[in-house]
Design a protein around this nucleic acid. Structure first.
Length: 561
RNA sequence: UGGCCCAUGGUGUAAUUGGCAACACAGCUGGUUUUGGUCCAGUCGUUCUAGGUUCGAGUCCUAGUGGGCCAACCA
């Protein structure tokens, strides 16, 4: 047995340390806190895997908490989509929570702050307050309303809550320090007036807490021990702690905010605003377009939850800037699909192949192994006949020794079938090859055990019988952007890097066993890649998405030459 | 022109906390193979710079360089 020490990421080190110096293991608690204002993407997946992964590792509960403090942007539709995505990834939350569950508690605590002289109602415009904020190098100036009496503040705040004031007329601010180095400590807003309908509290409230006032207190209510967020919230930590100081009961768990660097994936964007722009501009067909880095897009593309979890585990977590190559994500989906996807044959760029010595009009059904990686997957039958389709790329009139495929006078095996030899080909008036004529060796049938069947030939081609083939729409996807980091160029917009060839739709010819394929089924088209059945399929027509191509050594050789 | 955070092979992340810099991916070479897939073996390549502390520094200190973040009634 290996005695290798398990390597920990920096957050696990923090937790281990906390376990040594204070917390009991059974006190640990985490949370994943999405705002329900958009769809989850691969970056969220990483955060989900981090938080729920820690929950699994330490056998600690993880809450799913919706950070729903802004009724202008948040909708039930997003709540539903987020829950579906987290579940699909394979995680179970302990309890489903909402920041809006705590609106009353938050209000009560705000009253405490006012009574303690730690918060006040400001009645200036947002422009005036912005002017007084100062800059990172100059201190701000205090609001003329900063010294209102506790009684007046209480009355105004209650009035705000009762809906007596119009939006924008008053806010509640924490009274901290207008000269603080940290801009967030310069009397940050705690509440604003919003006469809006909230997806859960309806019209119960016309004041809504700001993120900083809601998040840490929600962690505290839930007794979350480690509140993990991305690096841009680092300056918020001081405020997070200040707010907790105002309400903290020493007998309870005091949550800690810790920050990690968000994972950036190459050749894509993940900001909700930019994703929305892709949808609204029609570059993609929707949030779940298979080219989108959303979880719903990846799901539709054919990614498995396992592959995404493995990806997240592999890339780890740290505090430095990063750009993870999308090929690593592709590696993980291939790795998983290789183990589970049944093999089938399909031809995407058909070239007619005629076997001149095959008995006219006859056919036979050959045995084909479903998955060499999984013997228990068994075998199926595929029909063979004298007229087949092969890939155009698999035939050349002449070629050098590196070309393992079919060339005139050369031999090749048809997968699960016979060894054939190309004798001649036919061209159209423009010189394009439109048909290949060949002969086959009847004794070379796969699996027959004959001497001829055991002959080694250099290449093996996939094929389908023309007569038995079923047609399907095949959607071939490529990266959405031509640049590895499209939204980091100062002089160019990310939309300038849209890959015009991110989607190619063609007709493919598939073996008939695919007739009963169901939406979501994942298969490997042998020698081509992994494909899955798209929800656009119906009883008339099958639609396949290419999840990812197979590793292609031949393409690499071609590139080098 | 203030403060804070970060810096390890091409990419991402580790390094038993100051003790022989490693793992995955990518690359390259070869082998197996009825998928130019998978699998197997091998190989290339790393601590931003300059000082300092120390028997010993990727790790600690100082300075520099480079990158990121900070002035929404967003989260």
């Amino acid at each position: 047995m290996s005695e290798e020490r398990e390597s920990l990421n920096f957050l696990e080190h923090i937790i281990e340390n906390d376990l040594k110096t204070g917390y009991e293991k059974n006190q640990l608690r985490f949370r994943f806190p999405p705002e329900p204002n958009g769809y989850l993407h691969i970056g969220h997946a990483s955060s989900i895997c981090l938080n729920f992964g820690l929950g699994l590792k330490y056998n600690a509960p993880v809450n799913l908490r919706f950070d729903d403090t802004n009724p202008i942007k948040e909708e039930q539709e997003y709540v539903d989509a987020i829950k579906r995505d987290v579940q699909w990834l394979g995680f179970e939350w302990d309890t489903e929570r909402y920041a809006s569950d705590y609106f009353q508690q938050l209000y009560d605590w705000a009253v405490v702050l006012i009574k303690n002289g730690k918060a006040y109602v400001d009645s200036q415009t947002s422009e005036e307050m912005a002017d007084q904020k100062g800059t990172p190098t100059e201190p701000g100036t205090e609001s003329p309303y900063r010294s209102r009496s506790v009684e007046e503040n209480l009355e105004l705040f209650e009035g705000m809550k009762e809906g007596k004031f119009a939006e924008g007329t008053h806010v509640l601010r924490a009274k901290i320090d207008m000269a603080a180095q940290n801009m967030l400590m310069r009397d940050p807003l705690m509440y604003r007036i919003l006469h809006r309908t909230h997806h859960r509290t309806d019209t119960d409230w016309c004041i809504y807490p700001m993120y900083d006032w809601a998040h840490g207190q929600s962690d505290y209510v839930e007794q979350v021990t480690h509140s993990l967020c991305t690096l841009e919230f680092l300056p918020h930590r001081e405020l997070y702690d200040w707010f907790l100081d105002q309400i903290y009961d020493p007998g309870k768990i005091r949550p800690k905010q810790r920050e990690f660097a968000r994972r950036n994936l190459s050749h894509t964007v993940v900001s909700k605003r930019k994703l929305l722009q892709l949808v609204e501009s029609g570059v993609v067909k929707g949030w779940d377009d298979p080219r989108m880095p959303t979880i719903s897009g990846l799901r539709r593309r054919g990614y498995t939850p396992e592959s995404i979890r493995n990806f997240a585990d592999t890339i780890g977590i740290a505090k430095r800037e990063n750009l993870i190559d999308v090929s690593l994500l592709e590696f993980h989906v291939r790795d998983h699909l290789n183990k589970i996807a049944p093999r089938v044959m399909g031809v995407l760029n058909p070239l007619k192949l005629v076997i001149t010595n095959y008995p006219k009009g006859s056919e036979e059904w050959l045995d084909a192994e479903n998955n060499p990686e999984d013997p228990s997957a068994g075998f199926r039958k595929v029909p063979f006949s004298g007229e087949l389709y092969i890939e155009q790329d698999d035939f050349r009139e002449e070629a050098n020794r590196k070309f393992f495929r079919l060339k005139l006078g050369g031999e090749v095996r048809l997968k699960n079938g016979y060894i054939i030899k190309a004798e001649s080909c036919t061209k159209d008036t423009e010189g394009n090859i439109i048909e290949v004529q060949c002969t086959y060796d009847p004794k070379s049938k796969s699996g027959s055990g004959t001497e001829e069947s055991l002959r080694k030939v250099k290449g093996t081609l996939h094929w389908v019988s023309m007569k038995h083939a079923i047609e399907a729409e095949i959607r071939l996807y490529d990266r959405l952007f031509t640049d590895e980091s499209p939204d980091t160029h100062k002089d160019k917009d990310f939309m300038d890097f849209i890959n015009p060839e991110s989607l190619k739709t063609i007709t493919g010819y598939l073996e008939p066993s695919l007739k009963d394929a169901k939406v979501g089924d994942r298969v490997q088209f042998q020698r081509l890649g992994y494909f899955c059945v798209d929800p656009d399929s119906n009883s008339e027509k099958l639609v396949f998405n290419r999840t990812v191509g197979l590793r292609d050594t031949w393409a690499k050789i071609l590139r080098k030459d």
